[in-house]
Design a protein around this nucleic acid. Structure first.
Lengths: 115, 115
DNA sequence: AATCTATATTCCGCAAGCGGTATATGGTGA
DNA sequence: TCACCATATACCGCTTGCGGAATATAGATT
């Protein structure tokens, strides 16, 4: 994957937040939507942007579409995701997202949710 | 510096090439122009883009303007520049730029050039 | 079949970015 | 002062990206 393509995916705040959350594991759209507290169309379009460029993969589970980071990642992508992980720890938005995700996961632990 | 601002600076190939070269040390515009083999206005505008966003600094030396990476870098910027340095080694364009820079530096070694 | 729920897509208007041409600026040297 | 060099800026047209409103799709449920 060409380096500049990766950066193009990283140069929007919403996409950064999505990728940062997906670093913790797969998530369906409705959860991402709830976590980011942004309109459905906005989330969906940014996920589509990432999907067409190969930064995320999708699987269907009934009604839900579950997004995840690709299992196999090029060295550049792996390096940049690691970098994002590190840097995100310094910014409030990302820490807040991570906190909300942790809370969500706690709630979901015993609820048979596919995500 | 906000993370997304950094990525905005990184999401253009010309700017990536410029930053990658500046990782090796300060350079004046005419040298960057020669190394990238791109029109003057293109180089100048991308450097201006980087300058207004604080990713490069300038000093004047007579007619020449010398661009450099900032001495003090935020952790995010430092991390991403290191990441770029690593990833660039995998792509032909960047390797070619680095080779040309090495050649230029060899030629300039004993020529009292300010860069 | 009709409905509901989750997600995607289309269409629109707007702003930003990019590359090029032409021109301006500002320091240097004759 | 005049010409010259290196660099920057203004303007233009084009493309891309973004957000929102409305609509479409596709699986689930009744």
């Amino acid at each position: 994957m060409e380096l500049v393509r990766i950066y193009e995916c990283l140069c929007d705040r919403t996409r950064l937040r999505l990728l940062h959350l997906l670093l913790q594991g797969p998530l369906c759209v409705c959860h991402l939507q709830g976590l980011l507290d942004e309109p459905q169309v906005k989330i969906s379009k940014h996920l589509a942007y990432l999907r067409t460029r190969g930064l995320v993969t999708t699987t269907r589970d009934g009604n839900r579409i579950i997004y995840a980071l690709p299992a196999k990642r090029s060295p550049e992508l792996a390096a940049n995701l690691a970098c994002l992980q590190d840097c995100a720890a310094e910014e409030a938005v990302f820490r807040r997202d991570a906190r909300r995700l942790a809370a969500l996961q706690a709630r979901l632990r015993d609820s048979g949710c596919p995500c």
